[in-house]
Design a protein around this nucleic acid. Structure first.
Length: 134
DNA sequence: GCCAACGTTGGC
DNA sequence: GCCAACGTTGGC
């Protein structure tokens, strides 16, 4: 199983809204690297949900419920979406500040490549963030 | 609101 | 195919 982190600006699509919806397709990715990551997602993979701009923190865990398919919001064949459902809300949110300060999390893309909106995480990194959030 | 990082576009 | 210009993202 793979692990991922996705970013969303809370005023565009927040964790709260995601939980109300129960399921969503992850659209709006217009970056090839992020797109490639979406394509590599498999059903059942776990995904951390990060609030960018406002909050700047990991707020919860989601899972992939449908693998990548054509982005329904565009005819451009370049872009895909996946379907995600919420799994759990972290007891404590994990801020970017905490992540940057954590020895084990120095190499994640969230720190190294700030603009990437969909990124892979190693199992250890995923577990470490959950630990910080429990 | 500014600016750094970085991806994309287009002229040559 | 290189690289300058430009646009976008996201932290501060």
């Amino acid at each position: 199983m793979n692990h991922w982190l996705v970013k969303s600006e809370p005023h565009k699509y927040s964790w709260e809204k995601f939980n109300e919806d129960g399921r969503t397709f992850w659209d709006g990715v217009r970056n090839y690297q992020a797109r490639n990551n979406l394509r590599d997602m498999r059903e059942g993979d776990l995904v951390l949900f990060y609030h960018s701009n406002e909050g700047k923190e990991v707020v919860g865990v989601a899972k992939v419920v449908k693998e990548s398919y054509q982005d329904p919001t565009t005819d451009d064949k370049n872009w895909v979406v996946v379907d995600l459902s919420p799994v759990e809300t972290l007891k404590k949110t994990v801020t970017l500040e905490q992540i940057k300060a954590d020895e084990q999390l120095q190499n994640i893309s969230l720190v190294r490549q700030g603009r990437l909106s969909v990124m892979p995480l190693k199992q250890e990194e995923f577990d470490r963030i959950l630990e910080l959030g429990s």
